[in-house]
Design a protein around this nucleic acid. Structure first.
Length: 256
DNA sequence: ATGGTTGGCATCCAA
């Protein structure tokens, strides 16, 4: 089973990149974040033409998540399921081929100390409770998406330079670790320990990709049973070098 | 120290 994640930064603008990538890579599951479109405007045909089922949960302008899959998605849920929690279209979960897939777009956090930064920390704490309530670590589960945290020094181009900033802050490390305590393993780090492998390069930095001024913030985590069976996990950097790319690229994990 | 870019939508916000 081949499972991938991609922050598209607009699913409509990235239609061609998505079509081409699906045709070439044939994953069983592709989790997408930042679709940036309401459900009635979601371009289902991109996926249908490629032979994929797709479920989606979006809003106007911001956020939005989707899951494309060869087999139809079952038991689809959106959000935390709280009336009190703001619905900002960052969570989509579904069972596909007997695997519970949790696709998240973790809040960016904007600036350390800001309201949005606190929201990111609270959101991660709430996510852990969601996992405790809805997932069984004895089952085959995947948590993937734009995690918006480079957890370790090797996950960012210059840890000393950015440490203490948003995306690489000790409070974020702590919040993420509490989620990971559920029983998750980082698939990418099962195979690759050195730094210099990134999934996101800022648009605003000139030639950021060529200079590899990047961050590894898009992750695929597996529950214990699946982590054992993970036979590979890699980043496909090529789509970030295409015309009109997203600022993120695809991460893929394979399971025996 | 600051700015650089992109997308969506409305002429600015989020990333």
């Amino acid at each position: 089973m081949k499972i991938a994640t991609f922050n598209a930064n607009s699913v409509r603008v990235r239609a061609e990149i998505l079509l081409d990538w699906l045709a070439e890579n044939q994953p069983d599951v592709l989790a997408i974040q930042e679709t940036k479109c309401e459900d009635d405007k979601f371009p289902q045909e991109i996926f249908q033409e490629s032979g994929y089922n797709v479920v989606f949960h979006g809003q106007k302008s911001y956020n939005g998540v989707a899951i494309a899959s060869r087999a139809p998605a079952q038991r689809v849920t959106t959000g935390f399921g709280d009336v009190s929690w703001p619905e900002d279209c960052r969570i989509l979960a579904a069972e596909i081929d007997g695997v519970l897939i949790l696709n998240t777009y973790v809040p960016n956090g904007n600036k350390v100390g800001s309201e949005k930064f606190q929201y990111k920390l609270d959101w991660l704490a709430r996510l852990r409770r969601w996992m405790d309530d809805r997932m069984d670590s004895g089952q085959d589960c995947i948590w993937l998406g734009d995690i918006n945290i480079a957890r370790h020094p090797e996950d960012v181009y210059d840890s000393a330079k950015v440490l203490g900033g948003v995306g690489h802050h000790p409070q974020e490390f702590e919040a993420l670790d509490r989620v990971l305590d559920w029983g998750w393993s980082d698939c990418f780090r099962k195979f690759t320990t050195e730094g210099g492998h990134f999934t996101f390069w800022e648009f605003v930095i000139p030639r950021a990709v060529e200079r590899d001024i990047g961050w590894r913030i898009d992750h695929i985590y597996a529950s214990p049973s699946l982590a054992q069976r993970c036979s590979g996990c890699w980043i496909d950097k090529a789509p970030r070098l295409l015309e009109r790319p997203s600022d993120h690229t695809f991460v893929i994990a394979e399971f025996a």
